[in-house]
Design a binder for these strands. Structure first.
Lengths: 203, 203
DNA sequence: CCTACCGATCGGTAGG
DNA sequence: CCTACCGATCGGTAGG
């Protein structure tokens, strides 16, 4: 007998809904929200325009569903919880490694957030941040529990810089990968973490 | 006699053009590119729709003009050049201070870049990066010239992390300022620079 | 620089 | 889930 999955045998309606979301996700990433029409989504998903409205009340509802269900934080938070280590260095390195692995190496992880920022003025983004705030603080407590190894900086700041560093890595990665220049294409991620670790560690 | 300015007595046409750009800038920031109509720009600028086309061939040309002339890099690069210091610490601190001062404290500095990223797939952004690449490298050389004080990391990486840190500061600042929480509203910028400095300095 | 207009396309719905 | 349609609005232009 097979292991019970979270989504056992999806109904036809569920499959169509997922198909619409996948199509919209692709289009939003390349054209933005206002640059993507309902007709384009219908074509990409392979059904008629009217068919979409059996699954979503309107266009914004499609975006919201994608934004919430496929937000990078959805993968980042469990990765953060799964991270282990008995020293600050081990814990941070493992967290960085796990988050990068779960989020993937692709530089489009931030794209959804940018779209939301630009075209919805960050309305949903604030909710996401508040939802994941406890998990970030929990990680901060785990860090702080490794006493005597950290510099006397506010823990929230250290978490903020950590998350910001991951963001900035992906942002600059995107910027660089789009230009041709492949010299200096050495592995920068480890250096980012290195600089961060050195920056927060005492001694 | 007054000091000669860069833009002496603008013609009426130049003033109208500037007015259209300012109006479009405001609207793009709040609604994005595809979310802003030419009619909305005309209204905001206080002229008729047709009048815009005396100054810009089409909508995208307005965005391009704004993106290039008002890009945050336009202020950041001179600030970087003006920074001074005889040690790494002094130079980095002064650069950070100057950039922050010239770019302003407002968290919307990144907004234009995000819009370009989302709605033009980063076509212009790559050009901007290439344009400012020499000035970033020049700053890198100045940093590296302060021998013996830096850890043995690739200089381009150190510059990349520095720029990325500024980005991430503004990004997280925006995210935080939109939620109500004002505890921990202490000055985080200096801590960002502190962690960075400690991260790249030897000893 | 404005008025008046163009064809195209938008988000959404009725009815089956 | 599709066909056929709605009114509104889009970017852009002609003509003055």
């Amino acid at each position: 007998m097979a292991i019970k999955k979270d989504h056992p045998q999806p109904t036809k309606g569920e499959r169509t809904r997922a198909c619409v979301m996948a199509a919209a996700h692709r289009l939003f990433l390349s054209k933005g929200y206002n640059g993507t029409s309902m007709r384009a989504i219908a074509d990409e998903a392979g059904l008629a325009l009217g068919g979409i409205y059996n699954h979503f009340a309107n266009k914004e509802e499609i975006f919201e569903a994608i934004f919430i269900e496929r937000h990078p934080f959805q993968d980042m938070a469990p990765a953060l919880q799964a991270a282990q280590g008995s020293t600050v260095e081990e814990l941070v390195r493992d967290a960085a490694r796990q988050m990068r692995h779960s989020v993937g190496r692709r530089p489009d992880v931030l794209h959804l957030m940018f779209i939301e920022w630009v075209e919805f003025e960050g309305r949903h983004a604030v909710k996401m941040r508040e939802k994941f705030h406890p998990q970030l603080m929990e990680f901060g407590r785990r860090l702080a529990a490794l006493t005597g190894q950290l510099r006397p900086l506010p823990v929230p700041i250290m978490i903020r810089v950590f998350i910001g560093l991951l963001f900035s890595y992906y942002m600059t990665e995107t910027l660089l990968s789009k230009s041709i220049q492949t010299k200096y294409q050495h592995e920068a991620f480890d250096d980012f973490i290195d600089i961060y670790l050195r920056g927060i560690l005492a001694r």
